[in-house]
Amino acid sequence: MSDRVLHVENLTVDIPLATGILHAVDGVNLHVDRGETLCIVGESGCGKSLTSLALMDLLPTKATRKIKKLELGGESILGYSEREMSDVRGNKMGMIFQEPMTSLNPAFTIGNQMIETLRRHRNLSNDAASELAKRMLEKVGITAAGQRLGQYPHQLSGGLRQRVMIAMTLLCEPELIIADEPTTALDVTIQAQILLLLKELQSEFDMGLVLITHDLGVVARIATRVAVMYAGQIVEEGTAKQIFENPLHPYTRGLMRCIPVPGKTKRGTPLGSIPGMVPSLIGDFTGCRFADRCELAGDVCRQSDVPLRDPNGKTQAYRCIHSIEMLAKGGVA
């Protein structure tokens, strides 16, 4: 088996609306290796959540997915029927959602919901599944695990519920976990614990992890590689080190100016912000999507679509017509 857990080429998600077609995700390429954490960063509505749902084939019914290549563990799952996909979900790839408070069914015990997952994919007795579920709860740091199995979601706190979700997702030891803002709904101290837990479990199980977030602090903590999304496209992709130390795309550079850096950001000076608004993605769009908010933008930027390119072959690709040198001098940064 290759080390590449996930390989996605040219993913597009369209949503038909009364006013036209919303191109929510446009030509996204992704890849994740075993043991690697890919963070997809972007602001609300940039298509990052839809990207994750599209990978699971769990998009809302009105959204249409087009995709050129979708491989999981080296095997194409693109032509899979709904039934075949359901064999993959929860088994080879699992997903953790943003809202731990509402992501578990209130009518069933934790144990019931964990055991049904296990027994769906593994030929296990109820007792064996229960024992495994208990051990997995212990693994995610839940005390009195045996007792927790008999409890209902509303009896647990948000942090505990997210731990349960993580444990449930890990039950079948998937090759890939997609976590969509797993810490957004939790308070800060719990956030840190959950992130640390994810990181530990990822290396223990040697999984690929796709973490979707808008929080650059989370990215800095956990990412191996980063893909920055803007208006449905990946505008920059590279290792965490590259993205944080040497961002190229004006949007990424703008984002970096928004976070305070200890020792670097001076007290009293305002943090950066990116002027303007995200363009409407309804209907056809030509040219750079960031052009209207970019200080470096000229007429050329608006004339034709800009490809994602990696001129130096350093695994850091960006979607801008300007050269690296020009960007480094940067009108923006």
Binding site: L58, R89, G90, F97, L104, A107, E116, R120
Partner: peptide
Amino acid sequence: STDYIRTARAKGLRPRVVLFKHALRN
């Protein structure tokens, strides 16, 4: 349209289980 139904589907449960166990009861 709730999150827990999405979770049930993300776990790979069969549509009939999602519908009659997870949805109908609620």
